[in-house]
Amino acid sequence: MPEIVLNPESNTCSMKSLEGLIVVLAMLVPFIAIKSHDLSTYAYWSVVTAIYLVYISLSRW
């Protein structure tokens, strides 16, 4: 069986893990910090996702 050999890219991987952690923590903020009875939570989640989408669009893969 031929072995699949990939470049471990450990630096890229750890940077990506940090990025993932930041995104997950940012998405959990409403559980702790947003308590107003308006569209704040709704807007917050939408904006965080939009910012991440723009970041993905602009960053080098």
Partner: peptide, 29 residues
Amino acid sequence: GVGALGFELFYLVGTLFLLSYYAPKVWDL
């Protein structure tokens, strides 16, 4: 309520996160 939006957008950011890293590798392979 809005938790449903959070649940669905969590899926979306997870997908974007995974695809931006793994999609090029999977496509190449």
